[in-house]
C-alpha cells in the first residue's frame, strides 16, 4: 500500500518535474555556463565575467534594457488602467448571461495566434490601412498616414496582447467580493470614489499584483509585437538577445543578456512588491 502510494506520487509529479527540469532548470544551467565563458580564440574559451561587463559598459545595451523596462512598466500600467474598469463591470455590474458573454468576448482574441493578431493591427494601422483610408475619406488627412512602426503602435499592440492576463485575475478576485460588502460601504456614507479606494481596490489587490507581474513579464519578454509594430527607435531588449544568438552567433553575450533580463526583471518585480507592501504569498493566497 505504501509503496503503491509512493509510486502514485512519483507518477503524478513526474510531468511537473520533467517540465521544470528539462525546459527550465537544465537550459538555464547551460545558459549560465555559456554566459560566463569568454572566447579567446577559435574554439578556445575561458571562464570570465567579460560578457556581463560588456552589458554594463556598452551604453546601447543598458539603455535598451532600461527603455524596455520602462515601456513594459508603462504597458502594464496602461493595461491595468484599461482592464480594471472592464473587469469591474464584468465581475460586479453585469449579471447572468451578459456577464458570461462579456467574459467570453475578452477571450475571443486569444483563439487567434499572436502573429495573426499582430498582423491584424498592421492591417489597421499601415499607410494603406483602414484608419488611414478612413481619415482621408473623412477629410481629416490629405495624404496616407503611416501609423505603424512607432512607440504608440507598439504600445497598443502590447496592451492588446496582455489584456487577458490582467482581466482574468482581476475578475476572479473581484467576483469573490460579496456585493453586500460594497453596499455596506455606501450605506455607511461612502462615495463611489471612497468605496473604490477603501474596499474594492484593497480587495482586488492580489489580482492587481498577480496580473501586473504577469503582464510586465510578458511585455518584457515579448519579441513579436515590438519587432512587427515598433519602429527603428523602439529597439526591444529581446531583439538584442535574438541578434546576438542568431545574427552574430555570439551565444556567450546572448546568454549573458538573457540572464541579465531574468535577474533585472525579478529585481524590478521584487522591488515593486516591497514598495507597495505586498507579498507574493498574499497574492497567491
Amino acid at each position: 500500500m505504501r509503496a503503491g502510494a509512493k509510486l502514485g506520487f512519483f507518477l503524478l509529479f513526474a510531468p511537473l518535474v520533467l517540465w521544470l527540469g528539462l525546459l527550465i532548470v537544465i537550459p538555464h544551467i547551460d545558459m549560465f555556463l555559456v554566459s560566463i565563458r569568454e572566447r579567446i580564440g577559435v574554439a578556445e574559451y575561458q571562464t570570465s565575467l567579460a560578457n556581463y561587463l560588456t552589458f554594463f559598459t556598452e551604453p546601447l545595451y543598458l539603455v535598451t534594457f532600461l527603455r524596455t523596462a520602462m515601456m513594459s512598466i508603462l504597458a502594464t500600467a496602461l493595461t491595468l488602467v484599461i482592464g480594471f474598469p472592464v473587469s469591474f463591470y464584468i465581475a460586479k455590474i453585469a449579471k447572468g448571461r451578459l456577464q458570461s458573454a462579456l467574459f467570453l468576448l475578452t477571450l475571443v482574441p486569444f483563439y487567434v495566434s499572436e502573429l495573426v493578431r499582430t498582423f491584424g493591427w498592421m492591417i489597421l494601422l499601415r499607410e494603406t490601412g483602414l484608419f488611414s483610408t478612413l481619415l482621408q475619406w473623412l477629410g481629416l488627412a490629405d495624404q496616407p498616414v503611416e501609423m505603424l512602426y512607432n512607440d504608440v503602435a507598439m504600445m497598443v499592440g502590447l496592451v492588446y496582447t496582455s489584456m487577458l492576463f490582467m482581466v482574468v485575475p482581476l475578475i476572479t478576485t473581484m467576483e469573490s467580493l460579496d456585493d453586500s460588502v460594497i453596499e455596506a460601504g455606501y450605506d455607511l456614507g461612502g462615495s463611489g470614489f471612497s468605496v473604490m479606494r477603501e474596499i474594492i481596490i484593497p480587495h482586488a489587490m492580489p489580482g492587481i499584483v498577480s496580473g501586473s507581474i504577469i503582464v510586465f513579464m510578458l511585455s518584457l519578454g515579448n519579441y513579436l509585437t515590438p519587432t512587427m509594430l515598433g519602429g527603428k527607435d523602439s529597439l526591444w531588449f529581446t531583439e538584442l538577445i535574438y541578434s546576438q544568438f542568431i545574427v552574430r552567433f555570439n551565444w556567450e553575450l546572448g546568454a549573458a543578456f538573457g540572464f541579465m533580463l531574468l535577474f533585472l526583471s525579478s529585481l524590478i518585480v521584487w522591488g515593486t512588491l516591497k514598495l507597495t507592501g505586498q507579498t507574493l504569498e498574499k497574492t497567491m493566497g
Partner: peptide, 20 residues
Amino acid sequence: PPNKRPVNMVFQHLALFPMM
C-alpha cells in the same frame, strides 16, 4: 442616495470589511 440617508443597515451576512 443610500450614502446620504440617515439609516444604516446590518446585513443578513453582516458584510464586515475583511480588508480592515
